[in-house]
Design a protein around this nucleic acid. Structure first.
Lengths: 196, 196
DNA sequence: TGTACATCAGTGAACGCGCGTTCACTGATGTAC
DNA sequence: TGTACATCAGTGAACGCGCGTTCACTGATGTAC
């Protein structure tokens, strides 16, 4: 039963790998088809075009990430600083295990048209925003603008990844997890950080 | 005297504006030529090709930025936190005055081939690294890995710019200068932040 | 000062190339009777 | 169960398009005598 569409998975795997490694624009249909061992036309049996396929796969990868990431931040009952450290380690470990894939999930948004918007339930940034709002409600963190704070955390955590990816930082990011997490805590503990 | 090459400046201005606004890859030779009111061939009288021109203009823009930025960080005799705030304000003000241009200088490196390396004297990141090393020597800051710390600062300061540019942060970054600067200080004041 | 030639910025049609996409076709699988 | 037809994933040569670049040419400016 269901022997149809057997090559679709191969196309998806090849596409994700190539999008992640070379970027969206630099990956061609022929690249994907060749790596998947498939004709160029095969792709158009499953998606209307390259852009739609890329967005489809991007959403899927992002969702998989967020689904695994959210529980780490929620971390049943553990103190805030432990959970933050676990979250940073989670990201850096995923980066070590598959640098291209992590970069695709967290840094590839710029490659899509600006009007394309991720579902709020899937978007890793929104996962962090919701986490911060929850902590502020609980009183674990001083009140403030959750989105602005998320931006700061995002910058702190991902900049070392970027630097490592571009070959400018030699240290394995995982070894930096502790100081990075402490930097996050230092930023979060500040009061009245929103001038509105 | 010297009535030659009168259109070169026009080409440069058009190219910088377009590179900054649309990105390197999305800007075509014809775009530049049209905006500068020039034939497509004119460009090749001054540079070997598009890539060389882009890198040339990029270096020039980066140098102009660093030249103005360095004294703000050095800030004769003023206390560290005041200088940091001034530096953040400097960047955010430049962003407000010309978002594309600031983004071109500080965020466009990814568009160039990785082997292209900025001169250390020009590179804004290296300006910050030297600043941190100087402060650590003076004892104003605890000892640590200057490059790693620069990465954190870079992330903190530029992430809000990115978010604003992509339309996800509505607040004018200049209004966030104070909390951002305070976040930088909080990160810098930490001890033993390098696990090596 | 005038003349002949060299230099060089600038032109824009044309070229070659690589890209995303199309399309007529194939062959295996599912469905109707 | 067998037969006729519909469906659909997959093929790969061909198409159209936009890109960076080339090149024969122009005309103004600099230089040699």
């Amino acid at each position: 039963v269901g022997r149809r569409a057997t090559k679709r998975q191969g196309i998806e795997r090849a596409a994700i790998r190539l999008f992640a490694a070379k970027g969206l624009a630099a990956t061609t249909i022929r690249d994907i088809a060749t790596e998947a061992g498939v004709g160029e036309g095969a792709l158009y049996r499953h998606w209307p075009g390259k852009a739609e396929m890329a967005w489809d796969l991007y959403c899927r990868e992002v969702e998989a990430f967020s689904r695994a990431f959210e529980p780490v931040l929620a971390g049943n009952g553990r103190p805030l600083d432990k959970r933050l450290l676990a979250a940073v380690r989670f990201i850096y470990r995923r980066y070590r295990d598959g640098p291209d894939r992590l970069a695709f999930v967290l840094l590839a948004r710029a490659g899509f048209p600006q009007q394309q918007i991720l579902d709020k339930k899937i978007d890793p940034d929104q996962v962090v925003v919701r986490f911060l709002e929850r902590e502020m409600d609980r009183g674990t963190l001083p009140k403030g603008d959750a989105f602005f704070r998320m931006s700061l955390l995002r910058g702190i955590v991902l900049q070392p990844v970027l630097m490592h990816r571009y070959g400018r930082l030699k240290t394995d990011p995982l070894r930096l997890a502790r100081p990075v997490a402490r930097a996050c805590m230092a930023v979060l503990r500040q009061r009245e950080d929103n001038p509105r």
